[in-house]
């Protein structure tokens, strides 16, 4: 047991302990010039872009963006862990009493399939039956003979809640539906498998997936803006109380013509 008391052991212990300290360098800072955001993985990539532009424009200011999901974002904002929660669905009555929502953009909810899938459009009723597991073969909606694998998001995801509200109504999503925990995972799966169908933010669809027309209306920014496309949801920043003045600065930037046009070029629909 002598080695325990030796100076070499003490030095090693000290080194080991000090190596743990930088771990907390990534923790959210809530003071001074720094603003922290947490929440919806649908808003996250756009918020990161805005944060980057903001930091470039105002040197010395930092914006930290983390994912985690809409409900996690609300919880983090409620507990004061972050300055701004990101939420990609409408607030419930109970939630809107607690938070101040700021509408930063509108987003179309795109229904996506593999590029090899011949189907190009679905009605809302077909979509509902398909995700409820009542339609199980692509032939029934004008595609090739083969099973349909709907992909849903996990319980609590803002995208899922918007989808349920806009499409499913009182129907429940099929228990056979594959569940993925991020937009990225849904994207990878639909890209690789012609039997799947999923839903995600219109701004995230990209070129590897095919967005379907819903009720005959293709999900384009123009159609969302003109309120023709059916599946549209709000993207919110939520704060609790007065909060951090630096956070207000970032919100002002997001709502400024510059921030809004940045969001518009990324496929979202501006609100200002």
């Amino acid at each position: 047991m002598r080695f325990l008391a030796s100076p070499r052991f003490a030095l090693r212990a000290l080194l080991a302990a000090s190596s743990l300290v930088p771990l907390c360098a990534g923790c959210p800072r809530t003071s001074g010039q720094s603003v922290s955001l947490l929440g919806s993985t649908s808003i996250q990539p756009f918020a990161e872009l805005l944060a980057e532009r903001y930091a470039k424009k105002y040197p010395g200011k930092f914006v930290e963006v983390q994912g985690g999901g809409s409900t996690a974002g609300l919880q983090a904002a409620a507990s004061g862990l972050v300055d701004i929660g990101m939420c990609s669905r409408s607030l419930t009555d109970k939630e809107s009493r607690v938070f101040t929502p700021i509408l930063i953009a509108r987003d179309g909810l795109a229904i996506v399939v593999n590029l090899d899938n011949p189907v190009t459009k679905l009605s809302l009723a077909q979509l509902r039956a398909l995700f409820a597991g009542q339609i199980t073969n692509w032939q029934e909606v004008g595609g090739k003979d083969g099973p349909i694998w709907p992909i849903t998001r996990e319980e609590g995801s803002g995208t899922r809640e918007s989808f349920v509200r806009l499409v499913m109504g009182n129907e429940r999503i099929s228990r056979r539906a594959l569940t993925q925990e991020s937009n990225g995972a849904v994207k990878e799966l639909v890209k690789g498998d012609a039997a799947t169908i999923g839903y995600m933010s219109l701004g995230l669809v990209g070129k590897d997936l095919k967005p379907l027309a819903v009720e005959g209306i293709p999900p384009t920014v123009e159609n969302v803006l003109a309120a023709r496309y059916h599946l549209v949801r709000p993207l919110l920043f939520v704060t609790k109380g007065a909060g951090n003045p630096a956070a207000q600065g970032f919100v002002d930037f997001v709502l400024s013509p510059e921030g809004q046009s940045l969001l518009a070029t990324e496929g979202l629909v501006r609100v200002q």
Binding site: S70, T71, E155, G156
Partner: peptide, 11 residues
Amino acid sequence: ALEMGYASGDH
């Protein structure tokens, strides 16, 4: 792991 991040109350 899928649902913990969001869950509150009974869930």
